[in-house]
């Protein structure tokens, strides 16, 4: 189920990138794809009936199958931070695009030529 949500979100992101003319919507689409990938990664580490990967006195051993895989969660944390960085750089670029070309809609931007 979670995988399906992830695939649908990637589809929405790709659709946004291909159809939208507003550059901010491109950035949002990219963010949706990032989120979809992150959800997918967390889902790969999930174990049915598994507990949170925290070593306590109630869970004294690392018996296989009792904990969900903590590594994908750690990876996702890093990926989220990177995604935020990308979003920040993209948003700041869009401010400058707006200043220079009067718009962030590709059809109304002035002075953009190949």
């Amino acid at each position: 189920m979670v995988y399906i949500i992830s695939i649908i979100l990637v589809g929405i992101g790709v659709y946004g990138l291909m159809t939208q003319k507003n550059l901010f919507k491109h950035l949002i689409s990219l963010s949706i794809i990032d989120t979809a990938v992150n959800i997918f990664i967390v889902a790969t580490g999930y174990v049915n009936g598994g507990k949170a990967p925290i070593y306590t006195k109630n869970f004294p051993s690392f018996a296989i199958g009792r904990f969900v895989d903590p590594l994908p969660q750690a990876l996702v944390l890093t990926a989220i931070v990177i995604g935020v960085g990308t979003l920040a750089v993209g948003a700041s670029l869009l401010v400058r695009v707006k200043e220079k070309h009067s718009s962030i809609d590709v059809e109304n931007m002035k002075g953009v030529g190949e």
């Binding site: 550059l23 990219l30 794809i33 750089v89 993209g90 670029l93 400058r96 695009v97 220079k100 931007m109």
Partner: peptide, 13 residues
């Protein structure tokens, strides 16, 4: 800026 933004989107994907 505009070309840099396009690069960012492609690089992000």
């Amino acid at each position: 800026f505009y070309n840099a933004f396009k690069y960012l989107i492609l690089g992000g994907i």
